[in-house]
Amino acid sequence: MKKFLEISLALMLTIGLLGGCGAKEEAKVPEGSTLSGKIVIAGSTSVQPLSEELADAFTEKYPEVSIEVQGGGSSVGVKSAKEKIADMGASSRAVKESEKEYGLTEYVIAKDGIAVVVNPSNKVDDLSLEQIKKIFTGAITNWKEVGGADKEITVVSREDGSGTRGAFVEITKVLDENGEGKKIDNTTKNALVQPSTGAVKQTVANTPDAIGYISMGGMDDTVKDVKVEGVSATEENAKAGTYKISRPFLYLTNGEESEVVKKYMEFVLNEGQEIVKEEFISVK
């Protein structure tokens, strides 16, 4: 009885293996490509959804390739590329001065606009970059100073180190040089800090006198975006450069790239831009 079981098990396994081989060979034929391998992309959670869509489209074209997309944050992306933990690092902020020395190759794959949002009940709908800077550094603390109601402003910011925050403070000049020529993030200490786009949106939607900033891709009706310098936060305006607050999405590689990575990069920068366009701003 036991012997019979063993034999039948072995038989089943063999058949299973053979079947697997057959399926593999079949899949290879239609595309006629020999490209195979694995890519690991790690980093910014802002880039993650885009990476996943790009990876899906790429593996549809080359079924032999598997792509793994991991999160972790922009700094994790830079670190993963540097230490070759991942084949590619993803970052939603420009590479910092202190990280430049790692000698990573940078590819801008998309651009994302950052919308300045207020509660829908707020009457203010146009702010200048200067006013935004003053609000976020705490120089302006009441809505009446920018043409709104006589209410104290609740500033909502992202956590220190966030890619969205990094891009926002740089563009709005909240990040400024101090006397010694060192760049200082002057975001007011009286700002609420929320750890994600969703949390900022929720906070602004819940708090009548709040102002915050979120990735343009995350906009919806629960909050109202204000015009910046008279230009509304739309993709066209960000791409044309008239909307001032936008940031790059980067892929980073370290040293010699494998064949698969090269092919993937080529795909992302050409056909992939169609996918980028759906939510973000293409670089083409």
């Binding site: 959670t45 999160g71 700094s75 994790v76 220190d160 180190g161």
Partner: peptide, 13 residues
Amino acid sequence: IAMEMGYAGPMHQ
């Protein structure tokens, strides 16, 4: 710690 770990640079971490 929970909020900032993901995006932290080396010194920050």
